[in-house]
Computed example of a mutant assay.
Amino acid sequence: MPPHRIFTTPFAAVYPLYVQKAERKGRTREEVDEIIRWLTGYDPAGLALQLERQTDFATFFAQAPAIHPHSAMIKGVVCGVRVEDVQDPLMQRIRQLDKLIDELAKGKAMDKILRR
């Protein structure tokens, strides 16, 4: 079975959609970036470089400096899929990021989104 299409999609192609979703609900690009950096361990320059290079999702997560240890606490349903039940590790990371952005758009406090 071929890999899922999202794995080869450039992260930079989806990033603006994350930002738009957040901004439509009164949140900011900076909050989106904070969530991405929290999950992946990228610093601002590293995230900007990944966006500039048009890195695909598989590479984006493979090169992530440090997946946050509390990422296992990300639970719930996003796009009809229960995040904690996703078997493929890469797809689970992508769904975790989707879930965090959903929580941001729904107005949840950053401390709760970042599992502090």
Rank of each mutant, 00 (worst) to 15 (best):
F7G: 01
V77G: 10
I74D: 05
Q92C: 07
P16A: 01
I36K: 09
P65G: 06
F61A: 00
A58S: 13
A12V: 01
F61R: 02
P44E: 08
F57M: 09
A48C: 03
R5D: 13
M73Y: 13
K108Y: 10
I6T: 00
I36G: 08
E34G: 14
A45D: 15
M91P: 11
V14K: 08
K99V: 00
T59L: 05
E52Q: 14
I74Q: 08
H68Q: 07
H68W: 02
I36N: 08
R24F: 11
R115M: 14
K25D: 05
A12K: 08
I101P: 01
P16C: 02
Y18F: 12
P89N: 09
M91F: 12
A12F: 06
C79N: 15
R29G: 03
K75W: 01
E103D: 15
T55S: 10
P69F: 08
F11P: 03
R115P: 02
I94E: 02
I35R: 10
T9P: 11
L47G: 06
M91R: 14
D43F: 02
M1E: 13
I94K: 09
D98S: 12
D33Q: 12
I113P: 01
L17I: 01
A66C: 13
A58E: 10
G26H: 10
D102W: 09
V78I: 03
Q96C: 12
T59S: 12
A22M: 02
T40Y: 06
V81N: 15
G76D: 06
M91Y: 15
E84P: 06
F61K: 03
H68K: 09
I101W: 01
Q96H: 09
Y15W: 07
H68I: 05
T59K: 11
K99D: 04
L100A: 04
D85F: 03
D43V: 04
R82Q: 15
